[in-house]
Simulated assay, not measured.
Amino acid sequence: MPLKLGSVGVAAVHGKLHLIGGRDSHTVEPIPGTPISQGFGTVRTHLVYDPARHRWSEAAPLPADPRDHAGIAVLGHSIHVLGGRATTETTNLARHDVYDTRTGRWSTAAPLPTPRSAGAAVVLDGRIVYAGGECKGDAATTPTGVYDDVTAYDSAADRWETVTSMPQGRQAFGAARVGNRAYFTAGALTCGGGGSADNLALSLH
């Protein structure tokens, strides 16, 4: 890669990889009372990798806020970037930006119903499903945990709809579709960190 990034969104469209947002950690600060340090420096970067030519290039950067820990999904020619955070989970975003790979331009779409980051996005039955995330409540002062919400985006109507919630809230987990089901695997059950061995399945029918 042309630069070092973490917490980046990745999408594959028409044989190319799009790496969007993330953080470059140009500033690293220790977290008091822990052996952990945290990197800061969220970016608007949009890199494109062409595996056929083994080449990197730059595309139009994210509009407005830089962000990391965003959800990312592909519908047709378009890449949808959902939520994320400007710096930490205290600056969660509800933004929904859409990049058209044919025109190279960004547009905005219906925002997430609730600002959040570190959720999981997957395409199921032609809709984008976004699940979980952190942190609930006023994350700046009294974070209360993680979201169990699951919402589905209909691009034709530009609208989000609530679907069945997960049995338990989570963040930082994986999502993928197999057949007519979406699978949500692992994740932290608390705001900030942790893990689980859960493997959840969702059907929209």
Rank of each mutant, 00 (worst) to 15 (best):
P2M: 04
G6F: 09
G6A: 15
S7V: 12
V8L: 12
A12E: 15
V13A: 06
L17F: 14
G21E: 02
G22D: 02
H26S: 11
T27G: 05
P30F: 08
P30E: 03
I31C: 10
S37F: 12
R44I: 08
H46P: 03
L47G: 01
V48Y: 01
D50R: 07
P51M: 07
A52I: 14
R53E: 15
R53H: 15
H54K: 15
A59H: 04
P61D: 04
P66R: 00
A70N: 07
I72D: 00
A73V: 05
V74R: 05
S78K: 11
S78M: 12
H80A: 02
L82S: 00
G83T: 06
G83H: 02
A86V: 13
T90P: 03
T91L: 07
N92W: 01
V98D: 02
V98Y: 00
T101N: 04
G104H: 09
R105D: 12
R105Y: 11
W106E: 06
T114R: 12
P115C: 07
R116C: 05
A121V: 08
A121D: 02
A121Q: 04
V123N: 03
V123K: 02
L124Q: 01
D125E: 14
G126C: 10
V129R: 00
G132S: 04
G133F: 00
G133S: 03
C135L: 06
D138N: 10
A139H: 01
A139S: 12
G145L: 09
V146Q: 02
Y147H: 11
V150A: 04
V150T: 09
A152N: 02
A152Y: 01
Y153F: 10
D154I: 07
S155F: 11
A156I: 13
D158N: 15
E161K: 10
E161M: 12
S165W: 10
P167H: 04
P167G: 03
P167T: 06
Q168F: 09
Q168K: 13
R170Q: 05
Q171T: 11
A172K: 07
G174Q: 09
A175P: 03
A176M: 13
R181K: 11
T185M: 14
T190I: 13
G192L: 06
G193H: 05
G194C: 07
G194R: 07
G195I: 08
G195M: 11
A197V: 15
D198W: 12
D198L: 14
L202V: 08
L202T: 01
